[in-house]
Protein backbone atom coordinates (compact mmCIF):
# COMPACT_ATOMS: atom_id res chain seq x y z
CA UNK A 1 0.00 0.00 0.00
CA UNK A 2 2.73 2.45 1.05
CA UNK A 3 4.63 1.75 -2.16
CA UNK A 4 1.62 2.46 -4.34
CA UNK A 5 1.04 5.65 -2.35
CA UNK A 6 4.62 6.70 -2.98
CA UNK A 7 4.27 6.06 -6.69
CA UNK A 8 1.41 8.54 -7.07
CA UNK A 9 2.92 11.14 -4.72
CA UNK A 10 0.73 14.23 -4.28
CA UNK A 11 -1.94 12.79 -6.57
CA UNK A 12 -2.54 9.93 -4.11
CA UNK A 13 -5.63 11.52 -2.51
CA UNK A 14 -7.23 11.98 -5.95
CA UNK A 15 -6.43 8.45 -7.08
CA UNK A 16 -7.57 6.88 -3.81
CA UNK A 17 -10.85 8.84 -3.83
CA UNK A 18 -11.49 7.87 -7.45
CA UNK A 19 -10.85 4.24 -6.57
CA UNK A 20 -13.42 4.50 -3.75
CA UNK A 21 -15.95 6.15 -6.06
CA UNK A 22 -15.53 3.32 -8.57
CA UNK A 23 -15.93 0.81 -5.75
CA UNK A 24 -19.33 2.35 -4.95
CA UNK A 25 -20.62 3.11 -8.45
CA UNK A 26 -19.82 -0.22 -10.10
CA UNK A 27 -21.67 -2.40 -7.56
CA UNK A 28 -24.49 0.17 -7.60
CA UNK A 29 -24.94 -0.07 -11.37
CA UNK A 30 -24.72 -3.85 -11.21
CA UNK A 31 -27.35 -3.71 -8.47
CA UNK A 32 -29.54 -1.57 -10.71
CA UNK A 33 -29.18 -4.05 -13.57
CA UNK A 34 -30.12 -7.00 -11.40
CA UNK A 35 -32.89 -5.07 -9.65
CA UNK A 36 -34.66 -4.88 -13.02
CA UNK A 37 -34.19 -8.64 -13.35
CA UNK A 38 -35.44 -9.21 -9.79
CA UNK A 39 -38.43 -6.98 -10.46
CA UNK A 40 -39.45 -8.94 -13.54
CA UNK A 41 -38.95 -12.26 -11.79
CA UNK A 42 -40.70 -11.30 -8.54
CA UNK A 43 -43.69 -9.70 -10.25
CA UNK A 44 -43.74 -12.62 -12.66
CA UNK A 45 -44.06 -15.16 -9.86
CA UNK A 46 -46.63 -13.01 -8.06
CA UNK A 47 -48.73 -13.07 -11.24
CA UNK A 48 -48.19 -16.81 -11.83
CA UNK A 49 -45.75 -16.25 -14.71
CA UNK A 50 -42.10 -17.28 -14.97
CA UNK A 51 -40.50 -14.00 -15.99
CA UNK A 52 -37.39 -13.83 -18.19
CA UNK A 53 -35.77 -17.26 -18.47
CA UNK A 54 -34.26 -17.46 -21.98
CA UNK A 55 -30.96 -15.54 -21.84
CA UNK A 56 -28.44 -17.44 -19.77
CA UNK A 57 -29.16 -19.76 -16.85
CA UNK A 58 -32.66 -18.86 -15.54
CA UNK A 59 -32.45 -15.63 -17.54
CA UNK A 60 -29.57 -14.27 -15.46
CA UNK A 61 -27.92 -12.51 -18.44
CA UNK A 62 -31.19 -10.77 -19.39
CA UNK A 63 -30.16 -7.34 -17.92
CA UNK A 64 -26.96 -7.35 -19.99
CA UNK A 65 -28.92 -8.25 -23.12
CA UNK A 66 -31.35 -5.40 -22.39
CA UNK A 67 -28.50 -2.96 -21.87
CA UNK A 68 -26.84 -4.04 -25.13
CA UNK A 69 -30.11 -3.65 -27.01
CA UNK A 70 -30.66 -0.13 -25.65
CA UNK A 71 -27.12 0.87 -26.56
CA UNK A 72 -27.62 -0.21 -30.17
CA UNK A 73 -30.78 1.84 -30.59
CA UNK A 74 -30.86 5.25 -32.17
CA UNK A 75 -31.55 8.29 -29.99
CA UNK A 76 -34.28 10.18 -31.82
CA UNK A 77 -34.58 13.89 -31.07
CA UNK A 78 -38.16 14.98 -31.81
CA UNK A 79 -38.67 17.88 -34.21
CA UNK A 80 -39.26 21.13 -32.38
CA UNK A 81 -37.49 19.79 -29.30
CA UNK A 82 -34.88 21.85 -27.53
CA UNK A 83 -31.94 19.64 -28.41
CA UNK A 84 -29.52 20.77 -25.70
CA UNK A 85 -32.01 20.46 -22.85
CA UNK A 86 -33.45 17.26 -24.34
CA UNK A 87 -30.05 15.60 -24.05
CA UNK A 88 -29.20 17.28 -20.76
CA UNK A 89 -32.33 16.01 -18.98
CA UNK A 90 -31.20 12.38 -18.51
CA UNK A 91 -27.92 13.66 -17.08
CA UNK A 92 -29.77 15.96 -14.66
CA UNK A 93 -31.76 12.94 -13.58
CA UNK A 94 -28.80 10.59 -13.17
CA UNK A 95 -26.27 12.91 -11.50
CA UNK A 96 -28.16 13.47 -8.21
CA UNK A 97 -29.01 9.77 -8.03
CA UNK A 98 -25.29 8.98 -8.01
CA UNK A 99 -24.09 12.04 -6.06
CA UNK A 100 -26.12 11.16 -2.97
CA UNK A 101 -24.04 7.98 -2.53
CA UNK A 102 -21.02 10.12 -1.60
CA UNK A 103 -22.19 10.34 2.01
CA UNK A 104 -23.94 6.98 2.44
CA UNK A 105 -22.12 4.76 4.96
CA UNK A 106 -22.01 1.00 4.40
CA UNK A 107 -20.26 0.14 7.66
CA UNK A 108 -18.95 2.55 10.33
CA UNK A 109 -15.66 2.80 8.38
CA UNK A 110 -16.86 2.28 4.82
CA UNK A 111 -18.02 5.74 3.75
CA UNK A 112 -16.66 8.02 1.06
CA UNK A 113 -17.27 11.31 2.89
CA UNK A 114 -18.30 11.10 6.54
CA UNK A 115 -19.64 14.65 6.87
CA UNK A 116 -21.60 16.09 9.80
CA UNK A 117 -24.75 16.97 7.93
CA UNK A 118 -24.94 13.91 5.68
CA UNK A 119 -28.71 13.55 6.08
CA UNK A 120 -29.26 17.16 5.03
CA UNK A 121 -26.88 16.68 2.12
CA UNK A 122 -28.89 13.72 0.88
CA UNK A 123 -32.13 15.68 1.18
CA UNK A 124 -30.64 18.56 -0.82
CA UNK A 125 -29.16 16.37 -3.53
CA UNK A 126 -32.21 14.17 -4.04
CA UNK A 127 -34.40 17.27 -4.26
CA UNK A 128 -32.50 18.24 -7.41
CA UNK A 129 -33.53 15.03 -9.19
CA UNK A 130 -36.87 16.55 -10.15
CA UNK A 131 -35.18 18.84 -12.68
CA UNK A 132 -34.37 15.90 -14.92
CA UNK A 133 -38.06 15.03 -15.14
CA UNK A 134 -39.28 18.60 -15.64
CA UNK A 135 -36.64 19.49 -18.22
CA UNK A 136 -37.29 16.23 -20.10
CA UNK A 137 -41.01 16.95 -20.20
CA UNK A 138 -40.56 20.51 -21.40
CA UNK A 139 -37.73 19.93 -23.88
CA UNK A 140 -39.54 17.04 -25.62
CA UNK A 141 -42.13 19.45 -27.06
CA UNK A 142 -44.84 16.84 -26.55
CA UNK A 143 -48.15 17.08 -24.72
CA UNK A 144 -47.89 13.75 -22.95
CA UNK A 145 -44.33 14.39 -21.83
CA UNK A 146 -45.33 17.80 -20.53
CA UNK A 147 -48.31 16.45 -18.61
CA UNK A 148 -46.08 13.80 -17.07
CA UNK A 149 -43.51 16.40 -16.05
CA UNK A 150 -46.19 18.60 -14.47
CA UNK A 151 -47.66 15.74 -12.47
CA UNK A 152 -44.25 14.58 -11.37
CA UNK A 153 -43.05 18.02 -10.29
CA UNK A 154 -46.11 18.61 -8.11
CA UNK A 155 -45.94 15.12 -6.64
CA UNK A 156 -42.22 15.17 -5.82
CA UNK A 157 -42.38 18.62 -4.22
CA UNK A 158 -45.39 17.58 -2.10
CA UNK A 159 -43.97 14.34 -0.82
CA UNK A 160 -40.59 15.89 -0.09
CA UNK A 161 -42.21 17.84 2.73
CA UNK A 162 -43.59 14.75 4.46
CA UNK A 163 -40.27 13.00 3.90
CA UNK A 164 -38.37 15.93 5.39
CA UNK A 165 -40.58 15.93 8.49
CA UNK A 166 -40.03 12.20 8.91
CA UNK A 167 -36.29 12.85 8.83
CA UNK A 168 -36.69 15.57 11.47
CA UNK A 169 -38.08 12.85 13.75
CA UNK A 170 -35.03 10.69 13.10
CA UNK A 171 -32.65 13.51 13.87
CA UNK A 172 -34.56 14.36 17.06
CA UNK A 173 -34.22 10.76 18.22
CA UNK A 174 -30.58 10.34 17.19
CA UNK A 175 -29.61 13.95 17.99
CA UNK A 176 -27.38 13.97 14.95
CA UNK A 177 -27.57 14.56 11.20
CA UNK A 178 -24.69 12.18 10.59
CA UNK A 179 -25.81 8.82 9.21
CA UNK A 180 -23.08 6.88 11.02
CA UNK A 181 -24.19 8.41 14.34
CA UNK A 182 -27.84 7.71 13.50
CA UNK A 183 -27.09 4.01 13.02
CA UNK A 184 -24.91 3.89 16.12
CA UNK A 185 -27.76 5.39 18.14
CA UNK A 186 -29.91 2.38 17.22
CA UNK A 187 -27.59 -0.22 18.77
CA UNK A 188 -28.95 -3.00 20.94
CA UNK A 189 -31.37 -5.21 19.04
CA UNK A 190 -34.28 -4.70 16.68
CA UNK A 191 -36.57 -3.18 19.34
CA UNK A 192 -34.10 -0.28 19.57
CA UNK A 193 -34.25 0.39 15.84
CA UNK A 194 -36.25 3.50 15.02
CA UNK A 195 -39.03 1.70 13.16
CA UNK A 196 -40.67 1.02 16.52
CA UNK A 197 -40.52 4.36 18.39
CA UNK A 198 -40.98 6.27 15.15
CA UNK A 199 -43.52 3.88 13.60
CA UNK A 200 -45.75 6.58 12.04
CA UNK A 201 -42.71 8.36 10.62
CA UNK A 202 -41.33 5.06 9.32
CA UNK A 203 -44.53 4.33 7.42
CA UNK A 204 -44.75 7.88 6.10
CA UNK A 205 -41.12 7.74 4.97
CA UNK A 206 -41.51 4.38 3.28
CA UNK A 207 -44.64 5.40 1.37
CA UNK A 208 -43.24 8.84 0.51
CA UNK A 209 -40.13 7.07 -0.74
CA UNK A 210 -42.27 5.12 -3.19
CA UNK A 211 -43.91 8.37 -4.30
CA UNK A 212 -40.59 10.24 -4.55
CA UNK A 213 -39.11 7.63 -6.85
CA UNK A 214 -42.29 7.68 -8.96
CA UNK A 215 -42.95 4.00 -8.48
CA UNK A 216 -46.30 2.25 -8.65
CA UNK A 217 -48.84 2.88 -7.15
CA UNK A 218 -47.74 6.53 -7.38
CA UNK A 219 -46.34 6.40 -10.93
CA UNK A 220 -48.82 8.89 -12.40
CA UNK A 221 -45.99 10.72 -14.16
CA UNK A 222 -45.68 7.81 -16.54
CA UNK A 223 -49.13 6.28 -16.11
CA UNK A 224 -49.10 4.26 -19.33
CA UNK A 225 -52.86 3.94 -19.55
CA UNK A 226 -53.32 7.74 -19.56
CA UNK A 227 -50.24 9.48 -20.94
CA UNK A 228 -48.31 6.61 -22.59
CA UNK A 229 -44.98 6.90 -20.74
CA UNK A 230 -45.13 10.38 -19.30
CA UNK A 231 -42.04 12.52 -19.28
CA UNK A 232 -39.82 10.05 -21.16
CA UNK A 233 -42.27 9.19 -23.93
CA UNK A 234 -40.01 10.79 -26.57
CA UNK A 235 -36.79 9.18 -25.36
CA UNK A 236 -35.22 6.14 -26.95
CA UNK A 237 -31.99 4.18 -26.74
CA UNK A 238 -29.42 5.14 -24.12
CA UNK A 239 -31.17 8.44 -23.28
CA UNK A 240 -34.15 6.39 -22.11
CA UNK A 241 -31.86 3.89 -20.40
CA UNK A 242 -30.27 6.66 -18.32
CA UNK A 243 -33.71 7.69 -16.96
CA UNK A 244 -34.35 4.07 -16.20
CA UNK A 245 -31.01 3.72 -14.40
CA UNK A 246 -31.70 6.88 -12.40
CA UNK A 247 -35.10 5.61 -11.28
CA UNK A 248 -33.67 2.33 -10.06
CA UNK A 249 -30.60 3.97 -8.48
CA UNK A 250 -33.03 6.22 -6.58
CA UNK A 251 -35.01 3.19 -5.46
CA UNK A 252 -31.87 1.59 -4.08
CA UNK A 253 -30.96 4.89 -2.40
CA UNK A 254 -34.33 5.23 -0.68
CA UNK A 255 -34.14 1.57 0.40
CA UNK A 256 -30.65 2.15 1.80
CA UNK A 257 -31.75 5.25 3.70
CA UNK A 258 -34.76 3.40 5.11
CA UNK A 259 -32.47 0.60 6.24
CA UNK A 260 -30.00 3.06 7.79
CA UNK A 261 -32.50 5.30 9.56
CA UNK A 262 -35.29 2.97 10.61
CA UNK A 263 -34.01 -0.61 10.38
CA UNK A 264 -30.73 -0.31 12.25
CA UNK A 265 -28.37 -0.19 9.27
CA UNK A 266 -25.56 -2.69 9.76
CA UNK A 267 -26.66 -3.69 13.28
CA UNK A 268 -27.70 -7.35 13.72
CA UNK A 269 -31.31 -7.82 14.97
CA UNK A 270 -30.10 -9.45 18.20
CA UNK A 271 -26.54 -8.92 19.37
CA UNK A 272 -25.80 -12.57 20.25
CA UNK A 273 -23.45 -15.16 18.81
CA UNK A 274 -24.85 -16.49 15.52
CA UNK A 275 -26.00 -13.04 14.41
CA UNK A 276 -22.79 -11.20 15.27
CA UNK A 277 -20.72 -13.60 13.12
CA UNK A 278 -22.28 -12.13 9.97
CA UNK A 279 -20.24 -9.12 8.75
CA UNK A 280 -22.08 -5.77 9.24
CA UNK A 281 -22.13 -5.05 5.51
CA UNK A 282 -24.25 -8.14 4.87
CA UNK A 283 -26.85 -7.09 7.43
CA UNK A 284 -27.17 -3.74 5.65
CA UNK A 285 -27.39 -5.37 2.21
CA UNK A 286 -30.02 -7.80 3.50
CA UNK A 287 -32.14 -4.97 4.85
CA UNK A 288 -31.79 -3.01 1.61
CA UNK A 289 -32.90 -6.10 -0.32
CA UNK A 290 -35.90 -6.46 1.99
CA UNK A 291 -37.05 -2.86 1.43
CA UNK A 292 -36.52 -3.23 -2.32
CA UNK A 293 -38.65 -6.36 -2.24
CA UNK A 294 -41.39 -4.28 -0.58
CA UNK A 295 -41.17 -1.83 -3.50
CA UNK A 296 -41.67 -4.64 -6.01
CA UNK A 297 -44.44 -6.14 -3.90
CA UNK A 298 -46.29 -2.80 -3.83
CA UNK A 299 -46.07 -2.58 -7.59
CA UNK A 300 -47.52 -6.03 -8.05
CA UNK A 301 -50.29 -5.47 -5.51
CA UNK A 302 -51.78 -1.97 -5.67
CA UNK A 303 -53.66 -0.26 -8.48
CA UNK A 304 -52.45 3.20 -9.46
CA UNK A 305 -53.68 6.10 -7.33
CA UNK A 306 -55.80 8.76 -8.94
CA UNK A 307 -53.96 12.08 -9.08
CA UNK A 308 -56.12 14.06 -6.63
CA UNK A 309 -55.96 11.16 -4.18
CA UNK A 310 -52.17 11.26 -4.28
CA UNK A 311 -52.22 14.95 -3.43
CA UNK A 312 -54.75 14.37 -0.67
CA UNK A 313 -52.63 11.59 0.84
CA UNK A 314 -49.50 13.74 0.77
CA UNK A 315 -50.90 17.00 2.09
CA UNK A 316 -53.89 16.02 4.22
CA UNK A 317 -52.72 12.73 5.72
CA UNK A 318 -48.94 12.45 5.80
CA UNK A 319 -47.98 15.99 6.74
CA UNK A 320 -50.45 16.19 9.69
CA UNK A 321 -49.40 12.70 10.87
CA UNK A 322 -45.71 13.64 10.89
CA UNK A 323 -46.37 17.00 12.55
CA UNK A 324 -48.42 15.41 15.32
CA UNK A 325 -45.82 12.73 15.93
CA UNK A 326 -43.05 15.33 16.09
CA UNK A 327 -45.07 17.21 18.75
CA UNK A 328 -45.64 13.99 20.69
CA UNK A 329 -41.92 13.18 20.50
CA UNK A 330 -40.89 16.66 21.58
CA UNK A 331 -43.31 16.56 24.53
CA UNK A 332 -42.39 13.06 25.69
CA UNK A 333 -38.68 13.83 25.44
CA UNK A 334 -39.15 16.46 28.16
CA UNK A 335 -40.59 13.86 30.55
CA UNK A 336 -38.83 10.96 32.31
CA UNK A 337 -40.15 8.72 29.51
CA UNK A 338 -37.84 10.43 27.02
CA UNK A 339 -35.67 7.29 26.85
CA UNK A 340 -38.43 5.70 24.73
CA UNK A 341 -37.29 7.80 21.80
CA UNK A 342 -33.54 7.45 22.19
Amino acid sequence: MIEIQGFFGPLWLLVWTLAKIVAIIVPLLLGVAYLTYAERKVIGYMQLRIGPNRVGFKGLIQPLADGLKLMMKEIIVPSGANKFLFLLAPVLSMAPALLAWAVVPFTPQMVLANIDASLLFIMAVTSMGVYGVIVAGWASNSKYAFLGAMRSAAQIVSYEIAMGFALVGVLMAAQSLNLVDIVNAQQGGFWHWYWLPLLPLFLVYLISGVAETNRAPFDVDEGESEIVAGFHVEYSGMAFAVFFLAEYANMILVATLTALMFLGGWEPPVAVAPFTWVPPLFWLLGKIAFVLFLFLWFRATFPRYRYDQIMRLGWKVFIPVTLVWLMVMGAVMQTPYGYLFH
Binding site: M123, A124, V125, S127, M128, V130, A153, V157, E160
Partner: peptide, 12 residues
Amino acid sequence: TLVLVYVGAVTV
Protein backbone atom coordinates in the same frame (compact mmCIF):
# COMPACT_ATOMS: atom_id res chain seq x y z
CA THR B 1 -30.26 24.73 2.93
CA LEU B 2 -29.87 27.06 -0.05
CA VAL B 3 -29.85 24.07 -2.37
CA LEU B 4 -32.65 22.32 -0.49
CA VAL B 5 -35.02 25.28 -0.33
CA TYR B 6 -34.26 27.37 -3.38
CA VAL B 7 -33.13 24.74 -5.87
CA GLY B 8 -35.25 21.87 -4.59
CA ALA B 9 -38.52 23.66 -3.97
CA VAL B 10 -38.83 27.34 -4.88
CA THR B 11 -37.28 27.23 -8.34
CA VAL B 12 -39.11 24.02 -9.22
